[in-house]
C-alpha cells in the first residue's frame, strides 16, 4: 500500500502474562481519520502508544511516515503530535507558557497566538493549568499536539470523561484536522464518536482486530437489521423471543433483551402477542438503527461497554 502513512502488521505486545496486543494489523492512508474502537482493555492504548514511540513492541511491524517509531528518535517526534490518555502538566504552568515551552522543542513551530485563538484559549492564556476545566485542559492538550504542525496526530480517547457539550467541541476540532488534511489515528470506546468522525474503523477486542472498514460498510455487515431493546416484568419462556417473527438474533444483557430484526414492525406485533399469551408485561421498548454497537455484539456476543 504505497499511500499508507501508518502501517501496522502483526503487532504483538505483552505485559508479563497478559497479552495486550495479539497480532494487530491495519493501514491508514494519508489524510484519513482512522479509529480504533473497542472496550476498555482491548489493546487500543497499547497499540497507539507503540505507534507514538512510548512503548516497545514484542514483535511485528509498525511504521509511521516511513519511520520506525521505536528507532527513529527526534526525527520521528518532529512529525507526530499526540494526546495521551493519562498525562498532565505542572499545576503552576500557564496556558501560554505550556504551548510556548513545547513549541520551542521543535524545529517546525506553529504560531502560539494562532493556537490560542483556534482552541478558544485566548481568555485563559494566563491561567494556571490547575485552574482549567476538563474541557479546557483537553483543548490545551490538542493545541500542544499541534505545536509542531505534525503530519500525523494520535488521539487516545480524546473525549473520555468529558461532558457532551465539550465532546462536541472536540469533534469540531477533529473535523478541522480533517479539513487541514492531517492524518488522525484515534482510539475510542464511544460508538457515536467513531461513527461521526472516522473515515474507517478497526474494531478491536482482546488485542485482536475483529473487523475493519468504514462505519457504513461495517453496519451493512450487520445485515441491515434493526436493534430492538426490551425490558420485561418477568423472564420470558426459554427461546420465546428468539422465535418471534423477523428476529435474526436475540441476546440478554443484564435483564435487557436485545433483538435484531430485519422486519421490526412484524417483530413488535409478534412480541406483544407473545407477552399477552404469557401474561407478561412490557416495561420498556427502544428501537435503534443498525450501529457499530450491533456489529460488535454480532462479532463478540458482548456489548462494547461491558
Amino acid at each position: 500500500m504505497p499511500d499508507s502513512i501508518i502501517q501496522v502488521d502483526e503487532l504483538y505486545k505483552s505485559y508479563g502474562a497478559v497479552e495486550a496486543v495479539r497480532g494487530v494489523s491495519f493501514a491508514v492512508d494519508e489524510g484519513e481519520i482512522f479509529g480504533l474502537l473497542g472496550p476498555n482493555g482491548a489493546g487500543k492504548t497499547s497499540t497507539i502508544e507503540i505507534l507514538e514511540g512510548l512503548r516497545t513492541r514484542d514483535r511485528g511491524v509498525a511504521r509511521v511516515c516511513g519511520l520506525d517509531p521505536e528507532k527513529s528518535g527526534e526525527k520521528y517526534k518532529e512529525r507526530i503530535g499526540a494526546i495521551l490518555q493519562s498525562t498532565s502538566l505542572p499545576d503552576k504552568i500557564r496556558v501560554r507558557e505550556a504551548i510556548e515551552l513545547f513549541a520551542k522543542f521543535y524545529r517546525n513551530r506553529a504560531d502560539t497566538e494562532g493556537l490560542l485563538r483556534r482552541f478558544q484559549l485566548e481568555e485563559k492564556r494566563n491561567a494556571f493549568y490547575s485552574q482549567l476545566s476538563g474541557g479546557q485542559k483537553q483543548r490545551l492538550a490538542l493545541a500542544m499536539a499541534l505545536v509542531n504542525n505534525p503530519q500525523v496526530v494520535f488521539l487516545d480517547e480524546p473525549t473520555a470523561g468529558l461532558d457532551p457539550q465539550v465532546r462536541r467541541e472536540i469533534y469540531d476540532i477533529v473535523e478541522e484536522l480533517r479539513r487541514d488534511k492531517k492524518t488522525v489515528l484515534l482510539t475510542t470506546h464511544y460508538i457515536e464518536e467513531a461513527e461521526r468522525l472516522c473515515d474507517r474503523v478497526a474494531i478491536i477486542d482482546h488485542g485482536r482486530v475483529i473487523a475493519i472498514g468504514s462505519p457504513r460498510e461495517l453496519k451493512h455487515r450487520s445485515a441491515g437489521t434493526t436493534r430492538i431493546e426490551v425490558r420485561l416484568a418477568h423472564m420470558p419462556k426459554d427461546g420465546a423471543l428468539a422465535r418471534l417473527d423477523g428476529v435474526a438474533d436475540c441476546r440478554e444483557f443484564d435483564g435487557t433483551f436485545v433483538l435484531h430484526s430485519a422486519r421490526p414492525t412484524v417483530t413488535i406485533v409478534a412480541l406483544v402477542k407473545e407477552l399477552e399469551a404469557e401474561q407478561n408485561e412490557l416495561q420498556s421498548l427502544e428501537m435503534f438503527s443498525p450501529s457499530l454497537e450491533d456489529v460488535f455484539i454480532e462479532l463478540t456476543g458482548r456489548r462494547l461497554r461491558e
Binding site: 507514538e52 512510548l54 528518535g73 517526534k77 507526530i80 495521551l84 498525562t87 498532565s88 505542572p90 522543542f105
Partner: peptide
C-alpha cells in the same frame, strides 16, 4: 502525575 510522559512525546 504523568507529566514526564508528556515530555517524552516531544524531542
Amino acid at each position: 502525575q504523568g507529566i514526564l510522559r508528556r515530555f517524552r512525546l516531544a524531542p
